[in-house]
Nucleic acid binder design. Structure first.
Lengths: 336, 336
DNA sequence: GGTGGCAATTTGAACGATCAAATCGCACCG
DNA sequence: CGGTGCGATTTGATCGTTCAAATTGCCACC
């Protein structure tokens, strides 16, 4: 029994069974037009009978491609299951494009670049999705220099029109929808609660609030709160705003964590209705688990994943496509 | 320029540069003892200078192994980022064992088995981690029949001593620690809030509560609440218990979601201290985000991942190891 | 009946690594 | 001085696939 496990049927076995050469079998699968219909039919029957499946390693070797997309999985420090959801969308999108997602975690921070390089040089992956782009991310020029295919989820802030390809969601637009929603429900003193200055996406979301308030001629003075991500600190920050002489009646928030904090700070009335209306960002489970459920701005992760995969696969397949930035729109999920 | 990208240095290039045969280069990397020290040194220098890295596809073809572990990523319906954390631990564990994690998501439910089969038959993965074992999971006998290597995270309930290999965490022990903790703090009426009968792990956790209460001679009558996972329903269930004539003063819970519900139902006193003490399960971010922070039972995910990978790799490498069940102990993280 | 053209199919080589067996060089010994 | 033994190294074959070029068979046409 020489390694005759579940595996073991090769293209030659099929060829022999169908009475053709191995190349004809290959053609049936890859270039059906080249094969006479009745031959193709005979070969297909043999394939089915033997349960033949082409060996991936052999294909990879021949094609010089792994059909794998590499993704660094960050240490789980986050609070939302954002990565969970993106990972799922990305896996599905990759799958329909004929790719697989390959996860890796560098042993140490200073080994990170070496790990990327290794995966490419050994041909383990064809390219990367970079989901945690930071400002002035040193990986991006490093990849570009080595002509390593990659696509960012998240803008390379400050270089949106630069040499990198990315897909991102327009946070300002999302917050704008949130403000519009609250204005439509009669609110005038709408506060913003989010991250301190410095995170690209956070700043953008805040600007979305500012500009929408301005368009409606609403004052933003004393209505901004900033704090790190965390329910407790967010609740404190919200309380400070609520303690002011003209307190906000509603909040738009940079994240669902901030939003949960705002809701806790606001409290509920006797009927169990929140004193302040809150719109979160990310539509994480927290938004639906809190009671009553909370409106939140949902990022179109499926679409993001599809675009990322599509951009990456064209780049992997060698066409020297120009850099491209794709901006998608989030959507307000209004609840209650 | 024939495909001379970042890639392209082969073992023959190194051999030529070092003035040896390609097999000697291979030996330097895989069987160093066979090579004379000065030759090895010369080869190693050539490897460094050329930046040689062995091609993975060629190795895979020759070795008949992909060094990839397949993992089905479930649709993200959960509330915790449990998968996030396990995925990370698993990626790290796989990495140190020389493997990579390959994610996939079957297009449709009825294609699930076909997807597994395909991945094995094409040699895309060497085996699977099954992280979502259900009672009477039809995949397990199906895998076994085909001699497809796999290891479960989670017991195959009812067949713990059966033909399958698994790693799991002793939920009853964990809950026991929680009850002990609460007893130690003077509580006598300790309620259990968890899933309705039917989930293997949920039932086990409840039994842990029952047996520990019994050991302390404490009555469990009217102290059990069950509901689906969800903060709102959990809060309602907890309220019902709290409304009874002899209400519980503390809760141990089947999940952090249940625990958050219990905490919300209990409410805070004037000093911001919870009226009821609560111990959750999973030590998810929710436990630390709620204010004040909550005790919770932490599963040793790093250890689980290491054991899973270790069991799987020995099975992949062909040794017909007998089935094995590994039970690990969770740990109470006491807070406040 | 020979020739050209075309579709269908086959053959040989290659992708880059590793294993098994063969070969080489050298010291040792009878 | 030739044979033996042994460590170090090389050669040839192989893993399973696909590309490029060669071959085959068939028909139409002059």
């Amino acid at each position: 029994m020489r390694r005759r496990d579940a595996n073991g049927v090769t293209i030659s076995d099929v060829a022999a069974a169908a009475g053709v050469s191995r190349q004809t079998v290959s053609n049936v699968l890859n270039r059906p037009a080249r094969v006479a219909p009745e031959t193709a039919e005979r070969v297909r029957r043999a394939i089915d009978e033997l349960g033949y499946r082409p060996n991936r390693a052999a294909q990879n070797l021949r094609e010089r491609a792994s059909r794998c997309i590499g993704l660094k999985i960050p240490a789980p420090i986050g609070v939302s299951n954002f990565l969970d959801r993106f990972l799922y969308s990305l896996t599905v999108a990759a799958g329909t494009a004929g790719y697989h997602l390959l996860l890796f975690a560098p042993a140490a921070v200073d080994e990170e670049l070496a790990t990327y390089e290794d995966l490419i040089r050994t041909g383990t992956v064809d390219g990367f999705v970079v989901a945690d782009v930071s400002a002035r991310d040193r990986r991006l020029p490093w990849f570009a220099e080595r002509r390593i295919p990659f696509v960012c989820f998240g803008r390379p802030w400050g270089q949106e029109d630069g040499p990198y390809t990315w897909v991102d969601v327009d946070g300002a637009y999302g917050i704008e929808q949130g403000v519009e929603h609250l204005v439509g429900r009669g609110h005038r003193r709408i506060a913003y609660l989010g991250w301190p200055e410095g995170t690209g996406f956070g700043d953008e979301r805040r600007r979305g609030w500012e500009r929408t308030m301005a368009r409606h001629g609403l004052d933003t003075g004393g209505l901004i709160g900033v704090c790190a991500e965390g329910v407790a600190v967010a609740a404190e920050a919200a309380e400070r705003l609520l303690a002011r002489p003209e307190p906000p009646t509603a909040f738009v928030c940079g994240s669902d964590t901030h939003a949960v904090g705002a809701r806790l700070a606001g409290g509920l009335d006797a009927q169990g209705r929140p004193h302040v209306e809150v719109v979160g960002f990310d539509d994480s489970p927290a938004a639906t688990l809190i009671s009553p459920r909370m409106s939140s701005i949902r990022q179109p992760l499926d679409e993001v994943a599809r675009r990322v995969v599509s951009l990456l696969t064209t780049r992997v397949q060698g066409s020297d496509s120009p850099p491209e930035g794709v901006m998608l729109r989030p959507e307000l999920v209004a609840r209650e």
